[in-house]
Structure formats: structure tokens, C-alpha cells
Simulated assay, not measured.
Amino acid sequence: MLVLALDTATPVVTAGLVDLTADGSWPSVRAARAHDGRKHGELLMPAVLEIVAEAGVTLADVEAVVVGCGPGPFTGLRVGIVSAAALGDALGVPVHGVCSLDAIALAAAGEFPPSERAASPGNLLVTTDARRRETYWAVYDPAGRRLTGPSVEAPVELRERLTELFVGRAVGDAAFAERLGLEIGGPASPPPDGLAAAAAGVLLAGSEPAPLEPLYLRRPDAVEPTGRKRVTA
């Protein structure tokens, strides 16, 4: 199954073509682009066209679309979700949303064989930038199964709970390493194979996609005005 994987939940704009096999083995990436920047709207579709050309296929060959639904900031996150929905509708293929942190966790867990995962000293923390001096985070077991989260809070508050969360390893945004008191490895953003792996069960089962629901985890900055401002003294 040829899967188009997209994510705009972080500052990294990700697009990839992934082969998902029926035996459930780890997805293989045919072509991928990861642009580090905040121009999600300008970067995403050119990246999609680039990977299709690089793989020597057409968009009509895509059999499913997977998109990261966050958590992430409002504007960037909606670019990926709306683009995925539009592509799915145009191509007549299912569109599945996944938690972007799940994709990072599965990719990180997939770097280690099962024997090493079993010997892991603790759980896996995934952390990404939520801006406003906060982090989006979730905790996973060594196999990449989510145990708690996703949540958003200040790193200093999360640091106080790392022991009770039994965190032994962290991946994601390395900018939080000092504030969390942890060494943070990669991947820093959701890779295409991790996105496909997060949706592999429903994709291979042919399940109907659930509605695409963005994970904001907090209210937007903009609020409706409560009344008209006086312009005269």
C-alpha cells in the first residue's frame, strides 16, 4: 500500500511516500522532504509534488493519506489537516489522522530491537515546542505505546513529575533538554514512516477513517470582543 504521510504540527514541514506491507513490517520510505521553517502553507504542497516526482509515481497511485493531527499550534496544524483532507477527496482515498507525538514515539522505539526495548530503564518521553515557553508532551512504554498524554505545560512543571512518570529516555525538541534535565534525542519531528506506523492497524484493516480532529490542547489567542470600544472621550 502506497501511503502519503504529512505533518505540520511542528516547525518542520514533513511529507513522505511510504510503502506499507500487508505483513505488518516496518514501513519503508520511498521519498521524503522535511523543511525546517514556519511557512507551512508555502512548503507543504511543493514538497508533495517533489516526492511524487522523485519516486517516479503520480498522485493517482497513492492509496491512502495519513496526517499528523497534533498537538500543535493552530495555523500550522490546520495547513496539514486541510491539505490532507483536500488530497483525499480529490484522489478518492481514505485520510487517517494520528497523534503526531505517537509517530515520533514509534519511530524512536523502532530504532531498537525488541530485546533492547525490554531492557529499557524506563518509559519514553516525547516533547515538542508548544511556544509560550511550554511543551507538548506524552509518555510511552519502550515499544512506543502511549501511556499518558498528550498534554501541554511548562517544562519546569513537567520536570517535577518525571520520576513518577518513570521516564528513562526522551526524544523530540532538544531545546527543552536543559529545562527538563534530560538528554533529548531524535527524531525531533514526526517522520513519514512513524506517521504510517501509527495508522498501520486501521490502514491494513481497511477501517473507515475517523473524523480529522486537530489537537490544540488549549484555547486560541484570539477571542471574540466583549463590546465596542469607545472612540470618544
Rank of each mutant, 00 (worst) to 15 (best):
P121M: 09
T148P: 00
P11C: 07
A47R: 03
V3F: 01
G97E: 03
P220T: 08
S83V: 04
A55V: 02
L147F: 13
G72A: 07
L77S: 01
H35L: 11
L217A: 02
P142N: 13
L147Y: 12
R218Q: 07
P209C: 09
L91G: 09
L59H: 06
D102S: 10
D7W: 06
E213W: 06
R30V: 08
P94T: 07
L2A: 05
E116G: 13
I104N: 09
G56D: 04
A143F: 12
L215Y: 02
S25H: 12
A154Y: 01
T21E: 15
F74E: 05
E183A: 15
P191N: 14
P209Y: 09
L217G: 02
L2M: 12
G110Q: 02
V48Q: 03
L203F: 08
V66C: 12
E153I: 00
A34N: 09
I81S: 03
R161S: 13
A22R: 14
V62N: 01
L158I: 07
R38Y: 06
T58A: 14
V67R: 00
L4G: 04
A53W: 01
A84W: 07
K39I: 02
S100N: 10
R33T: 14
R179T: 15
P71A: 12
P46Q: 01
L44N: 05
G201L: 14
G172S: 12
D221I: 10
A107Q: 10
Y216V: 11
L217H: 03
E50N: 03
S189T: 10
E160F: 03
V126Y: 03
L215H: 01
V95A: 05
V48H: 01
P46V: 05
R133G: 11
A170L: 09
A84S: 06
A196P: 02
D19R: 13
